[in-house]
Amino acid sequence: MRENREILRHIDHTLLNAAASWEEIQRLCEEAVAYGTASVCIPPCYIERVREAYGDRLNICTVIGFPLGYSTRESKVFEAKDAVEKGAQEVDMVINITDLKNGDIQKVTAEIRAVKEAVGDAVLKVIIETCYLTEQEKTAMCRAVTSAGADYIKTSTGFGTKGADIEDIRLFKKYIGENVKIKAAGGIRTREALEAFLSEGCDRIGTSSAVKLLTNTTGCE
Results as ranks from 00 to 15, higher is better:
residue 2 R to K: 13
residue 4 N to T: 08
residue 6 E to L: 03
residue 7 I to V: 12
residue 8 L to G: 00
residue 10 H to G: 00
residue 12 D to H: 03
residue 13 H to P: 07
residue 14 T to V: 02
residue 19 A to H: 08
residue 21 S to W: 09
residue 25 I to K: 00
residue 30 E to G: 07
residue 30 E to N: 13
residue 33 V to L: 08
residue 33 V to T: 05
residue 38 A to N: 07
residue 38 A to P: 01
residue 39 S to A: 14
residue 40 V to K: 04
residue 41 C to I: 10
residue 43 P to G: 10
residue 48 E to M: 12
residue 52 E to N: 11
residue 59 N to G: 05
residue 66 F to H: 12
residue 69 G to W: 03
residue 70 Y to V: 13
residue 74 E to D: 11
residue 75 S to A: 10
residue 77 V to E: 06
residue 80 A to P: 07
residue 81 K to A: 09
residue 85 E to N: 11
residue 88 A to L: 12
residue 89 Q to Y: 02
residue 90 E to Q: 13
residue 95 I to H: 00
residue 95 I to F: 00
residue 97 I to R: 06
residue 98 T to A: 15
residue 99 D to H: 15
residue 116 K to I: 06
residue 126 V to F: 07
residue 127 I to P: 10
residue 127 I to C: 13
residue 135 E to S: 07
residue 135 E to R: 15
residue 136 Q to N: 10
residue 137 E to W: 09
residue 137 E to P: 13
residue 139 T to I: 14
residue 144 A to C: 08
residue 147 S to R: 15
residue 148 A to C: 04
residue 151 D to A: 04
residue 152 Y to D: 03
residue 152 Y to E: 02
residue 158 G to E: 02
residue 160 G to P: 09
residue 161 T to Y: 05
residue 163 G to V: 10
residue 166 I to N: 10
residue 166 I to G: 07
residue 168 D to P: 04
residue 171 L to S: 00
residue 176 I to Y: 01
residue 178 E to Y: 00
residue 183 K to P: 05
residue 184 A to K: 01
residue 189 R to D: 00
residue 189 R to G: 00
residue 190 T to S: 15
residue 192 E to M: 01
residue 196 A to I: 09
residue 199 S to T: 09
residue 200 E to L: 09
residue 203 D to H: 14
residue 205 I to N: 02
residue 206 G to R: 08
residue 212 K to L: 08
residue 218 T to G: 13
residue 218 T to I: 15
residue 219 G to S: 11
residue 220 C to K: 10
residue 220 C to Y: 09
